[in-house]
């Protein structure tokens, strides 16, 4: 498809800081190349704002390759826009028809408070990982990597879960702002691998407890998270988390 230049009405959430009252503002943007990425379109809009002396729109972004998980825009009713398996930075303007309105909102969740405009605080995810999203192995006390064979299928499934980029789209998409997909991805990855088994039960217990403490909603198995996940992490991982959690609670000697 040849490059075109389109016009859009950009309706975007502006909020000066965490305590300020936010609201939508409309901007008109012309000459947007269809080859631009969505964030380059925002860059362009910001350049025009800066030239006018206005505060540019704040948004998290970094690698622009779809892997760091920083970008986090809720575009036209979908986290990372309407395309499947794509982050905001990999979304391109050719996907947006000319002369349409694009509505951009921040992730909405009590556990992800807005810092400014489209930038939200996702440190709750870090605290969840800190509560157990690791294998307790100190540097240096590892055995030879090939000492324990792991069937390819298991390794591949663990990889699928491990592909999570921690962007929070699952929380943004869920009508309950639940973080179950995020938590389950880590629990599932480490529960599948023999290296993670020793702590699997405690991990599931602690991570769920931290998730609850952060104020995320509960999972009602609607599947919206998986549908919107840019890495297409599936519902089976949530089931595995449930299983790990319940067997830990019901059957383990040391889980409280």
């Amino acid at each position: 498809m040849a490059e075109q230049h389109n016009s859009y009405k950009i309706k975007v959430w502006r909020q000066a800081n965490a305590n300020a009252k936010g609201g939508f503002k409309n901007y008109k943007l012309d000459g947007v190349s269809t080859d631009m990425s969505f964030l380059e379109m925002i860059d362009m809009l910001n350049e025009t704002l800066v030239r006018k002396g206005e505060d540019p729109i704040s948004f998290d972004h970094d690698c622009r390759e779809g892997i760091c998980g920083a970008c986090s825009m809720y575009i036209n009713g979908h986290p990372h826009g309407m395309l499947e398996g794509v982050t905001t930075c990999q979304l391109h303007m050719r996907s947006f028809p000319n002369n349409t309105t694009i509505t951009i909102e921040p992730w909405r969740a009590a556990a992800f408070p807005v810092i400014k405009d489209l930038t939200v605080n996702r440190s709750a995810f870090d605290r969840i990982i800190q509560s157990g999203g690791y294998v307790s192995v100190n540097t240096g006390n590892a055995r030879d990597a090939n000492e324990m064979p792991i069937p390819k299928e298991i390794a591949d499934e663990a990889f699928e879960a491990a592909a999570c980029i921690g962007c929070g789209a699952c929380v943004a998409a869920c009508k309950n702002a639940s973080a179950m997909l995020f938590v389950s991805a880590k629990v599932s990855q480490l529960a599948l691998l023999p290296q993670g088994k020793a702590e699997a039960q405690k991990r599931a217990e602690n991570m769920v407890a931290q998730m609850d403490e952060e104020g995320f909603g509960s999972c009602t198995n609607t599947g919206a998270c998986s549908a919107e996940c840019p890495k297409l992490i599936g519902q089976e991982h949530i089931a595995r988390l449930n299983r790990e959690y319940l067997t830990a609670k019901a059957g383990s000697d040391f889980v409280k």
Binding site: N76, A110, G215, F216, G217, S218, T220, T222, G223, A224
Partner: peptide, 20 residues
């Protein structure tokens, strides 16, 4: 009630990505 509390501000546009 708890889930409502987890999302205090609703989205202006909702794409409804749920399975059903």
């Amino acid at each position: 009630l708890q889930n409502k509390k987890a999302r205090p501000t609703a989205y202006a546009v909702n794409g409804n990505a749920e399975k059903s």
